Simulated assay, not measured.
Amino acid sequence: MGGVTATHAFGRPLVSLAEVNQDKVTPGLLGFVIFAALAFGLWMLMKNMGKQMKKIDFEEQAPPAAPAPSDPEAPRP
């Protein structure tokens, strides 16, 4: 059985550079990093909002009673 040489380790590349379309625009690494930072920031904001909402002590109050209707025969100003 023969030994593994350096040429076996590299093999044929999965995509040759001739097959890559140079006119195609992709987000690349910078796009991924920006998207990940925005997602992380949103997650942190939502986590903080949850903490702030738990601090609120809300007690629902009854609506004020409607004023009693005055005498319907009384003259209106």
Rank of each mutant, 00 (worst) to 15 (best):
M1S: 14
G2Q: 11
G2P: 10
G3K: 12
V4F: 10
V4K: 10
T5N: 14
T7F: 04
T7R: 11
T7Q: 11
H8F: 12
H8A: 12
H8C: 14
H8I: 10
A9L: 15
A9N: 13
A9D: 05
F10A: 11
F10V: 12
F10N: 12
G11S: 10
R12T: 08
R12Y: 06
P13C: 02
P13K: 03
P13T: 01
P13W: 05
L14Q: 03
L14Y: 01
L14C: 03
L14E: 02
L14D: 10
L14W: 05
L17Q: 02
L17P: 04
L17K: 03
A18G: 13
A18T: 04
E19L: 03
E19P: 00
E19W: 05
E19M: 08
V20C: 00
V20H: 00
V20P: 00
Q22R: 10
D23K: 05
D23Q: 11
K24C: 08
K24Y: 11
V25W: 08
T26A: 13
P27M: 03
P27E: 06
P27L: 09
P27N: 09
G28W: 04
G28L: 01
G28S: 02
G28Q: 06
G28F: 04
L29G: 05
L29R: 08
L30C: 05
L30Q: 08
F32A: 15
F32P: 01
V33A: 11
V33E: 06
F35A: 15
F35I: 13
A36T: 11
A36P: 01
A36R: 08
A36N: 02
A36D: 07
A37D: 05
L38A: 15
L38F: 15
L38C: 15
L38H: 11
A39W: 09
A39S: 13
A39P: 02
F40Y: 14
F40D: 05
F40E: 08
F40I: 15
F40K: 05
F40T: 11
G41M: 13
L42C: 13
L42W: 12
L42Q: 13
L42D: 06
W43D: 08
W43G: 15
W43T: 09
W43V: 14
W43P: 00
M44R: 12
L45D: 09
L45W: 07
M46P: 02
K47S: 14
N48Y: 11
N48E: 15
N48F: 13
M49L: 14
M49R: 11
G50W: 03
G50C: 08
G50L: 08
K51G: 14
K51M: 09
Q52L: 15
Q52Y: 14
Q52W: 15
K54M: 07
K54W: 04
K55M: 09
K55F: 07
I56H: 04
I56L: 13
D57H: 09
D57L: 04
F58E: 03
F58W: 09
F58D: 06
F58Y: 15
E59P: 01
E60R: 09
Q61T: 07
Q61F: 04
A62L: 07
P63Q: 06
A66L: 14
P67R: 04
P67A: 13
A68T: 04
A68L: 02
D71N: 08
P72K: 05
E73I: 00
E73C: 00
A74P: 00
A74N: 00
A74R: 07
A74D: 04
A74M: 09
P75Y: 00
R76H: 05
P77Y: 04
